[in-house]
Amino acid sequence: TEYKLVVVGAGGVGKSALTIQLIQNHFVDEYDPTIEDSYRKQVVIDGETCLLDILDTAGQEEYSAMRDQYMRTGEGFLCVFAINNTKSFEDIHQYREQIKRVKDSDDVPMVLVGNKCDLAARTVESRQAQDLARSYGIPYIETSAKTRQGVEDAFYTLVREIRQH
């Protein structure tokens, strides 16, 4: 089974770092803004072998026109913010609204991801993020692309959301 996953969120929150940590098991430290990259990885989730087709997208506003296209083809979405960047957390709402509009559905598989949880300088409390996820009816997972904490959990949870859909 193949799953088309799309990673969305503001610029600099760590979308590529999360994806590369999942696929290649290493942490990319330097920031190089993405336009669009796709990665494929075969994994076993709950005993089922599946192929993850992951689209890593641009957070930069100037590429926002490309969003409709990949939102149409994606089956599930990782909505990523950084726990030390309140603005990126506030941006999640717009991504969710755009996904709902493009998919013409209120019920699209999504996982809210709070990345950079290895950093002490948190400005978005776990509780705020949990409340937001609960209001959307989606899971919330904290990750660190640096330490790998929660990385597999985030992507695998999204696959489970798609399966249950």
Rank of each mutant, 00 (worst) to 15 (best):
G76T: 08
D104L: 06
K87C: 03
M66D: 15
M71G: 04
V6L: 08
D107H: 08
R127L: 12
V43Q: 02
R72N: 05
Y140I: 07
D29Y: 03
T34D: 07
E2Y: 00
T73C: 10
A17K: 12
E125C: 08
A129K: 15
E36I: 00
T86S: 07
E90Q: 06
D106C: 09
V113R: 09
P139F: 14
A133S: 12
T49I: 02
L78H: 02
K15N: 00
I92F: 09
E61V: 12
I45L: 03
D118Q: 10
G137N: 06
E48H: 09
I20W: 06
D56M: 06
A82P: 03
T49A: 06
D107I: 06
G59M: 06
R134L: 10
Q130L: 07
D131P: 09
T1M: 07
F77C: 02
A10G: 07
I83V: 03
E161W: 13
F155G: 10
E48W: 05
T143G: 12
K116P: 02
P139Q: 14
Y156N: 10
V43L: 08
A133D: 05
M110V: 07
K41S: 07
N115H: 15
V43S: 06
M71K: 13
R67N: 14
G47W: 00
A65M: 02
D107V: 00
E36T: 00
T86W: 04
T1D: 04
E36W: 02
D29A: 03
Q60G: 15
A120P: 14
V159T: 09
D106Y: 02
S144N: 15
A58S: 15
E142C: 09
M71V: 06
A65G: 09
Q21L: 12
V124L: 12
V113T: 06
E61H: 11
A154N: 06
Y95R: 01
D37V: 03
Y156C: 14
A58T: 15
L5Q: 01
G137I: 13
Y95Q: 01
E75C: 09
G9E: 13
R148V: 14
D46H: 08
A17V: 12
T157C: 07
Q42L: 02
D91H: 09
G114Y: 09
Y39K: 06
Y63F: 08
S38D: 01
G114E: 07
C50E: 06
Q69T: 06
I23M: 06
D131T: 12
P33Q: 07
V44C: 06
P139N: 12
H165M: 11
L52G: 03
Y31P: 08
Y39F: 07
A82F: 02
A133C: 10
G150E: 15
A129I: 11
Q130Y: 10
